[in-house]
Nucleic acid binder design. Sequence first.
DNA 1: AAATACAGGACTAATTCAGTCCTATTTACC
DNA 2: GGTAAATAGGACTGAATTAGTCCTGTATTT
Lengths: 150, 150
Amino acid sequence: MFKVNKLTDYATVLLIEIARRKVVQSSQHIAEQTGIPSPTVAKIMKSLNRAGLVASRRGASGGYSLERAAELITLADVIQAVEGPIALTACADTSDEHCNIESICPVQGKWNRANTAVRAALTQVTLADMVADMTMFGVPQHVAQTTAAE
Amino acid sequence: MFKVNKLTDYATVLLIEIARRKVVQSSQHIAEQTGIPSPTVAKIMKSLNRAGLVASRRGASGGYSLERAAELITLADVIQAVEGPIALTACADTSDEHCNIESICPVQGKWNRANTAVRAALTQVTLADMVADMTMFGVPQHVAQTTAAE
DNA sequence: AAATACAGGACTAATTCAGTCCTATTTACC
DNA sequence: GGTAAATAGGACTGAATTAGTCCTGTATTT
């Protein structure tokens, strides 16, 4: 199956959680809210921070918040933050990886068109869209509960 | 990096080879032409045949040929043939896989929009496009040689 | 000063993927 | 009719990637 990493899927869940509440949340807290193991959350949040998708505050009562509006964070951003560049084949990307079938694949533009098309598609979908889709398909019980509980 | 399987990349190479010559070729022959190991070629060709992208003829002087014109074979077809359904996340696909974070991800349409967009993007790129892109970026030495030799 | 929380990176376990091989079936040709 | 050539299907193994954990250091609040 053609799919994104598990971690990328998690990342969207985390970002949606952060987008819903507007306050700074510790990675520990986010883990509890989402049910994703805390070390894993920490790892992902670091990537998202490095990529500039979330702002971090250290120290007591620190944590993470969105760096910019959910409308301005695209799925392409998230995937790139967690997995690196969106390049459907290895040779299209960094030229330090050498294609072992060079005789027929001398870094030609074979896949360029596809890369561009997929990147464009993923740039069209924003975090805000995903939040909207979620509630459309039925508000998740768990989040609804915990949100109400506060 | 967000990318397709190596086998899918191979598959495009194989299909391009088949598209260039119009005759029926054995999987063995295709392997020699492309430099991809013959058992691997055989495996991929079986998938492509099952998916209806290539026609097969058994027995002596048998082999494979395109089932339809290169313009009508899309990258989405190839990916689906080799990797299965294009579903960016596991839970969006067959419902027999159970998401282990169900509390926050009860098979919601979170990723639907993205799946649709990516599928559309990959449907726009055809095998004919890839053949064209290849020659545009410089005719591969090897294929040029062997083609001339016959 | 002490507690809290992020930053970076090393390491291990689990999963997936790539590649090979074996047996059965079909077809061409002598 | 027999033999060789080729695909069909599937099982199996080794390699590579991914997911997950943990440790040490640094910044910040109270």
